[in-house]
């Protein structure tokens, strides 16, 4: 019965989405928005961005510049969507017990299965030897690689989202190798919640900073006086980097929060 309803819902959603395809411009249509020019630009907006991105922002990778500068609003609210997903998982799944309640249930468990818990932890230790030893090598390299991806968003593919995913994966790997407790010891719950909010705050804060210099929201060129750069182009480049850092913070902590809450049903104890 449940499957029937799910099937009907999926079919209706797919039909609506397919109906929306009708409104797309035809493939190779010369009047579609990417092919017709922007105001004051060249004949085609794609060509306009390809030609002017490096001149405007000093960023060789056009994708990064378009993502974080030309479409800055879009990316800001994408980051907010990720933060919202983390908050939703926290609000729905997280089980918060009062202290006395926690103590009573904990003592009951201990009274019932005291010896068993020690033998189980021994078994867990034996199971985790191979994976734990491998992860001791892999996790630092993965974190270094994550920072490399974040920092190399300018010249090569990469940036905040991708680097954040790699960093979050390294923490998940830590949790899989040594238990969730050891990963939570490195990135505590209050810390990752603060980090997730701080990422969006950094992004929006850089945008607001340019508002103080009587420019538009998220116009990083206004920061050239503050950053002591030669021209507005380098200021845009630095602004993009700051924004990427904020995105990376949010993505890292939300990735880890999703794993921690989903794998333990919100208890943040035991788990995989």
């Amino acid at each position: 019965m449940q499957k029937l309803f799910a099937t009907i819902a999926v079919i209706i959603t797919g039909a609506i989405l397919l109906n929306a395809v009708e409104d797309f411009p035809r493939f190779g249509d010369p009047h579609s928005p990417p092919n017709s020019g922007v105001s004051g630009g060249s004949v085609s907006s794609s060509v306009h961005y390809l030609q002017n991105t490096y001149l405007d922002t000093r960023v060789p990778n056009v994708v990064t510049a378009v993502l974080a500068d030309y479409r800055g609003y879009d990316t800001l609210f994408e980051t907010a969507v990720i933060l919202t997903a983390g908050i939703a998982v926290f609000a729905i799944l997280r089980v918060v017990r009062r202290k006395d309640e926690e103590e009573s249930t904990g003592s009951e468990e201990k009274a019932c299965s005291g010896e068993f818990s020690t033998s189980d932890s021994d078994g867990e230790g034996r199971h985790r030897v191979v994976v734990g030893t491998a992860c001791r090598v892999v996790v630092p390299l993965a974190q270094l690689f994550g920072f490399y991806i974040i920092a190399h968003g300018h010249p090569s593919p990469g940036g905040g989202f991708q680097g954040g995913v790699v960093l979050g994966t390294s923490f998940i790997l830590l949790a899989l190798a040594g238990g969730l407790g050891s990963a939570l010891g490195r990135l505590r719950e209050d810390m990752y919640l603060r980090l997730a909010c701080l990422g969006v705050f950094i992004y929006a804060g850089i945008g607001l900073l340019s508002l103080f210099f009587r420019r538009n929201f998220l116009d990083y060129g206004a920061l050239s006086g503050l950053l002591q750069t030669g021209g507005e182009e380098m200021a845009r480049s630095h602004g993009i980097f700051g924004v990427e850092l904020g995105v990376a913070m949010t993505v890292t902590s939300v990735m880890f929060a999703l794993f921690a809450n989903l794998s333990t049903r919100g208890e943040l104890k035991g788990g995989l």
Binding site: H127, S156, P157, Q162, V165, T169, I172, L176, L272
Partner: peptide, 27 residues
């Protein structure tokens, strides 16, 4: 030089996925 980064990231995610699936099914 570009695609090598994708390959490394993909290998990392694949490794994590395999370990997570093994842990989940072990329990």
């Amino acid at each position: 030089d570009m695609f090598i980064d994708f390959a490394l990231t993909y290998a990392l995610l694949n490794f994590t996925g395999a370990i997570a699936a093994a842990r989940y099914l072990r329990h």
